[in-house]
Amino acid sequence: MAAPALRVVEANARFYRHTWRGSVISSFAVPFFTLLAMGGGLGRLVDQGAGTGRGAYLGFIAPALLAATAMMTAAGESTYPVVAGIKWTKNYHAALATPIRPPDLVNGLIGFLGIRLIFNLAVYAGIMVLLDAMEVGPALAAVGPAVLTGVAFATPIAAWCATLDDDRALSSFFRFGLMPMFLFSGTFFPVDQLPSFLQPIVFLSPLWHGVELARGAAGVPESPHFPWWVHTLVLVALAVVGLFLAGRNFTKRLHT
């Protein structure tokens, strides 16, 4: 006997065996070169100049990149595949003709994403250690908050995508939602560098909370704005509320 959600995880894993090649570039190559360019090139400049005020530049952005990569992977897995399952390949409908229920599909999606994030981010953290961006301990410690960040994005995005009729909104979402978040969530520079009226907007970005939590776990001097538990609370709340909404929206959409 395996719980229904675990059986969905198993199905997703089987499916992934056919599609993983396509995701290698976005999962590993992009983060690797980002780290190299930003950390190596830009970092030298920053460290010779004013500095981050929170340690060496490479060590400053490395945990943030773990969280940001988690966000991107999570967004990839909770957008197009959800629309496809409902509208294009209809494989969600196929699964639902079995004892599987709509919330099992959500839990299976998130469960498999969690496994992938742990694996991908552990590999990425290993690369960071090899590049001298972080020590082993802090690198591993930062993986947990990064995985949480990914899940906190995936559940509300999946809930939203279950209401879509096509993918037209998605490219705008990536371009005007996630890209700015990726750049302006204190990922590459401390938020204090922004005009002070913009800072509260950054505090609304879930990625900023993930970035700061990952930094805290990696031992980067803490930001002066919020304690770690506030960041944790924001991310957990997003993940849980998103999970609830996704279960509800999947049911509404698929059991019509």
């Binding site: 395996a2 059986r7 079995t98």
Partner: peptide, 25 residues
């Protein structure tokens, strides 16, 4: 057997059946 085929076209014939069997536990 639904009106519209909803087989997983990325998977093999065998895998389609296997995954389905697993859905039934």
């Amino acid at each position: 057997v639904p009106q519209e085929d909803n087989l997983d076209t990325e998977l093999t014939v065998e895998e389609n059946l296997f995954i389905y069997g697993r859905y039934f536990d």
